[in-house]
Design a binder for these strands. Structure first.
Lengths: 148, 148
DNA sequence: TATTGTTAGTTACAAAATCAACTAATAGGC
DNA sequence: GCCTATTAGTTGATTTTGTAACTAACAATA
């Protein structure tokens, strides 16, 4: 064993934060993904856009871009698909004609509300693994990590 | 506002655990990804296989599959690319000729050691955002979420 | 020793993500 | 007004992933 090997005894892949975060994220996304994929044939990008519009009201692609930290091409394509399913409408801004205002239709809002209820139930189920204090701390720490 | 809307006041996308986990995972992967992508032209699947071989010694694709919770096609392709770069060798098992034993070459081991040091430093940097207790709790909770 | 089932790993094709280049509109000098 | 830079959003080419079907080897049973 070399010197460098010995110095490494404190490193453990199973504890490496980015790895651990990915594992947890992937595992926790799967069950919820089955719902929106199975029931609405949606992709992850699409439910994100749907939720952003449902939660924060009508906005432009760029605003979603910033809030959701998603690349604009992802959003562009998600919007196209959501529009094709008549889940949202686009309206050109009169003052700045580059900008489009996105808004959920009745159907889009119904899909959002239904998925939101499922999301809330699923979140409850996950969070029940921890105490209230732990859960609060977990969310705070994740927010901190996400916002770096 | 409908009844259903009002009932929803306690739901917040920004606190939805799967979403939050994904945001944190993505953010924390980025900086580290730049290293293995920039320096070795590796994909995430490749560094995972590299690390599993580096940490836990020679093993078969199926063993990595189980430990890393990666699909076997991902592993198959990652192994092909790592082999092409002479980072690992494959040896057919004499007793069961379906099985291949994977092992890092000198070059593979060198790459692993170098990346591992960077990973450790990066993990330290991230974890310094929290107290020791918080950090331990965070890892424990993430492990629990990942193992469901 | 056939027959059927299972396992290790690969390959082919379709779906999705990424990256760069693009159009159209606006804004800021000059 | 005219030139250049910037911004909103889209499109196309390439890369990567996901799904299913596949080959080869083994195991169990009759």
């Amino acid at each position: 064993m070399t010197k460098q090997d010995l110095e490494a005894d404190d490193f453990d892949l199973a504890n490496f934060l980015p790895y651990l975060l990915n594992q947890a994220a992937e595992a926790s996304s799967l069950e919820f993904q089955r719902v929106y994929k199975g029931r609405y044939g949606m992709l992850r990008t699409e439910w994100r856009v749907l939720f952003h519009l449902g939660m924060y009201g009508g906005q432009t692609a760029t605003e979603i871009c910033t809030r959701a930290r998603m690349h604009k091409t992802k959003i562009s394509r998600a919007v196209q698909r959501l529009e094709a399913r008549r889940f949202l409408t686009r309206t050109r801004d009169a003052a700045d004609r580059r900008v489009e205002h996105l808004e959920l239709t009745q159907a889009g809002r119904a899909a959002y509300l239904s998925l939101r209820d499922i999301a809330r139930a699923y979140d409850d189920k996950l969070i029940r693994m921890f105490s209230k204090d732990e859960a609060g701390l977990l969310r705070a720490m994740l927010r901190q990590l996400a916002e770096r």
